[in-house]
Design a protein around this nucleic acid. Structure first.
Length: 515
RNA sequence: CGGGGCGUAGCGCAGCCUGGUAGCGCAUCUGCUUUGGGAGCAGAGGGCCGGGGGUUCGAAUCCCUCCGCCCCGACCA
């Protein structure tokens, strides 16, 4: 039992001006945390109690599937060189030198260290599967720490790693984590949602993020009543069928004079055609990764055709094009299209025959598949074309889903309306594959006495994010100025307060309060 | 890193434009009163005005520079 009057709980009537999001203000005001620097926070008594309770829940559930380790936060350069991430992590990694001048870094994640242990110790398939986890402080020199505890440079993560003999084993380890995570978040009282995530350049076969809807979040996710849920970078939707325009003239592409009509809106108004009957042309340059330089060159033009009222999802496009995307300069546009922006379209653009072959990568968004008689730029100043029909009048390098879905569109499972909203990621489970076990040379002997590379998974939970997202959710339901935590993660479950000091009975209770 | 903003008492702010060495609310401390919903009255303490340099008789106020923090964009727990 603690006596409030003797505790250090520095509450604030007013939130410091630096605090923007609700959880940040409230954590400060309730005396849970204090800021030390950008993205660096001290957890005071109350904050630490909550964190400890969350950690206890995480540990309890994780002990059901794995074994707890504690790895060093201070890592020598060598292991990170082996995986290639000493270079990849760039500025995000805190680096330092020891007195002898040797390079060290502060761990941002621990695939390398875990794999080095696995490599040194695991010899036989009989030792697999293994699930090793830890609850430890991570360091990341974020480009922009923000929103209080939501995005910081030092935070507590539960990170777990699985080693299996084959994919079936990985599936099992992955599913165990999926289950454990759901239990953990439920016990913490969170209203969470599991979404399909972009596995990105890491090249894993599956990846799931656990998200909590909140405006303070940085991700956009879509979900529907059917149970479908996905990160916007992955989300697809069912579109209502559109009855195409009737062809004009002979039904073949027909030039229309459209002086000074450049945007979708302008052309639409000018020709009295809604945006969904138009083709939007987007022009990018992909700065390709070094591995592709020999084959595809340093950069390649990427041209995308979208439905007029749709917007491009750069993450989806980036996954297809590879490399970093940037918009074309006016000069580059003229080079590729032979026309200035405002009149761009498919005709005359030379598509690469295959995504892996050099040349302009031309992508037709799936939403335009099967459409006919669309309006598009003519690649000729002051002209557009009617009757444009994809695949008949032009062929892209490939057809792909590269658009952003919109709120209310039908979900791909049963067509029920999609809810789109910002969310915070509280956990992520990820089928890693062989990336680290291979690059770092981990292997075990299989049943046949042959050396095989174990397959890995990695799984993370942001401890503080459980706290912050819980507060964000509660604050949102209370007008932003108040919150309540689930007893499982609240610093205290019961506070006894005397409301009438004159009442002898209650005054006498002072010393007998319970936890 | 690019763009925007801020840095004056523990917290929230005013003063800066139109230089004359600092003020308000809350909090804190003392005393008295009060006591069923974050008390009232009276009094008190507390400020390197982010750091350094410059202009000036004189700088919180003007100029230069550095530092820090927040917000908007590329990352991820």
């Amino acid at each position: 039992m603690h006596r409030w009057s003797q505790l250090f709980i520095p509450t604030l009537r007013e939130a410091p001006a630096d605090a923007e999001v609700a959880s940040h203000k409230l954590l400060l005001r309730a005396g849970y945390i204090r800021q030390l620097g950008s993205g660096i926070y001290s957890y005071l008594f109350l904050g630490n109690r909550s964190v400890n309770k969350i950690v206890a829940i995480v540990r309890e559930e994780m002990d059901k599937v794995g074994q707890e380790f504690l790895l060093p936060a201070l890592n020598p350069r060598e292991v990170w060189e082996e995986s290639g991430r000493w270079a990849v992590m760039g500025e995000n990694m805190f680096r330092l030198k020891d007195r002898k001048g040797a390079d060290l870094c502060l761990g941002m994640t621990h695939e390398e260290v875990m794999t080095s242990i696995a490599r040194n110790e695991l010899r036989s398939y009989k030792q697999l599967p293994q699930i090793w986890y830890q609850i430890q402080t991570k360091f990341r020199d974020e480009p922009r720490p923000k929103s209080g505890l939501l995005r910081v440079r030092q935070f507590i993560m539960k990170d777990a790693y699985s080693f299996d003999i084959d994919e079936a084993g990985l599936d099992e380890s992955y599913n165990k984590h999926d289950k454990a995570y759901r239990t953990i978040f439920k016990r913490c009282g969170l209203d969470f949602i599991a979404v399909e995530a972009d596995s990105g350049a890491m090249g894993g076969s599956a990846s799931q993020e656990f998200m909590v809807y909140t405006d303070a979040g940085e991700d956009l996710i879509a979900s529907s009543a059917s149970g479908y849920a996905a990160n916007l970078e992955k989300a697809t939707s069912r579109l209502e069928a559109i009855e195409d325009l009737a062809p004009t003239g002979d039904g073949l592409p027909e030039l229309v004079h459209t002086p000074n009509q450049r945007t979708i809106e302008e052309v639409g108004t000018f020709l009295s055609v809604k945006p969904q009957y138009q083709i939007k042309t987007m022009a990018y340059i992909a700065e390709l990764p070094k591995a592709d330089h020999a084959k595809l060159g340093k950069t390649r033009p990427v041209v995308v055709f979208l439905r007029g009222d749709h917007s491009l999802n750069e993450a989806k496009l980036g996954a297809i094009s590879g490399g970093e995307l940037r918009p074309m300069t006016p000069e580059e546009i003229v080079e590729v299209f032979k026309a200035p922006a405002g009149y761009l379209g498919p005709i005359g653009v030379e598509p690469a025959p295959h995504p892996k072959k050099p040349g302009t990568l031309v992508i037709l968004d799936k939403a335009l598949e099967g459409r006919t008689n669309l309006i598009a730029g003519a690649n000729k100043e002051e002209y557009h074309l009617r009757n444009m029909t994809p695949m008949r009048d032009f062929k892209p390098t490939l057809v792909a889903d590269v658009r952003n879905i919109l709120e209310g569109e039908g979900c791909p499972i049963d067509g029920s309306p999609l809810r789109l909203g910002k969310a915070v990621e509280i956990g992520h489970i990820f089928k890693l594959g062989y990336k680290y076990s291979k690059s770092m040379g981990a292997s075990v002997l299989n049943r046949d006495g042959k050396e095989v590379t174990p397959i890995m998974g990695s799984y993370g939970i942001g401890i503080e994010r459980i706290l912050t997202s819980a507060i964000e959710s509660s604050a949102a339901a209370n007008g932003g100025s108040a919150y309540a935590l689930h007893p499982a993660i609240a610093p205290f479950q019961v506070v006894v307060t005397i409301t009438n000091v004159r009442g002898r009975q209650s005054a006498g209770c002072r010393r007998t309060g319970s936890r």
